[in-house]
Structures are given as structure tokens and as C-alpha cells.
């Protein structure tokens, strides 16, 4: 259910109670940048590769990963240098699963504080 909206390039985008997109179809890199700006973040290549990987996870499994699953999936696809909590916490303000899912246009992961 939409409780908030985000305006990107004149388009109104519906957000749910977790500040996640109501529909993944609304997502674009510009939307991700606008969502990141709300968090006071600037997206770099290091962020983008994780966001695209998350979208791949979602396409494959139809759900958003919790931290542990995210770490494992990143390690599997981008190597252990990036697939660890320290690296991902650093990129995503200490809450990688929750914040990265939001920026990638996915619903909030279950079992995530």
C-alpha cells in the first residue's frame, strides 16, 4: 500500500510503509539515485554492482535476501572480498540487506530489523 511518494523526473513513484517501491516496475537508475539521496548517499560503481546483483537474486528466488543470504550471494558472484559483512555494511550504512533492497526497488526483506 502506498503511504508516500517520490517524484523523479516529474514522475510520481509510490512508496510503501518501509520506504520501498510499491512496484519494481517503477525502478530506474534515476529512481535509485533519488532513493539514495533521501539516505544522504551517493551511489558509486561499488553500490551499483550490488544493486544489480540484488535484482538478479530477486528474479531468481522471488524474495529479498536477509543479510546472511546477501553476503553469501555476493561472495558467490563477486568473490569473498565483497561477499562479507564488513564490506557490505560499509557500503550500505550498516544495514545492507534492508537498505540495498530498498535502493534496488525490492520489498523489505523478512526477518530483518
Amino acid at each position: 500500500m502506498s503511504v508516500d511518494t517520490l517524484v523523479v523526473e516529474g514522475r510520481e513513484i509510490a512508496l510503501d510503509q518501509d520506504a520501498c517501491l510499491c512496484s519494481l516496475a517503477d525502478w530506474s537508475p534515476q529512481v535509485a539515485q533519488a532513493l539514495a539521496a533521501r539516505e544522504g548517499m551517493e551511489l558509486t560503481d561499488a553500490h551499483w554492482e550490488v544493486l544489480y546483483l540484488l535484482q538478479q537474486f530477486y528474479t531468481q528466488f522471488q524474495l529479498s535476501p536477509a543479510n546472511r543470504a546477501l553476503v553469501k550471494y555476493v561472495a558467490l558472484n563477486l568473490g569473498k572480498d565483497k561477499g562479507n559483512s564488513l564490506y557490505l555494511n560499509g557500503l550500505f550504512n550498516g544495514m545492507p540487506a534492508k537498505l540495498a533492497a530498498r535502493l534496488a526497488g525490492l520489498p523489505k526483506p523478512a526477518n530483518c530489523f
Binding site: 537474486f57 531468481q60 528466488f61 522471488q62 524474495l63 535476501p65 536477509a66 546472511r68 543470504a69 553469501k72 550471494y73
Partner: peptide, 15 residues
């Protein structure tokens, strides 16, 4: 319905 078999594939990722 949601694709439960896709969700099940995620189990190993969750340990």
C-alpha cells in the same frame, strides 16, 4: 500465486 519453488531455491543461500 507466488512462485514457491523459486523461493525454495533460496534455502541454501539462507544457510
Amino acid at each position: 500465486q507466488k512462485d514457491l519453488s523459486a523461493n525454495l531455491q533460496a534455502l541454501p543461500m539462507f544457510g
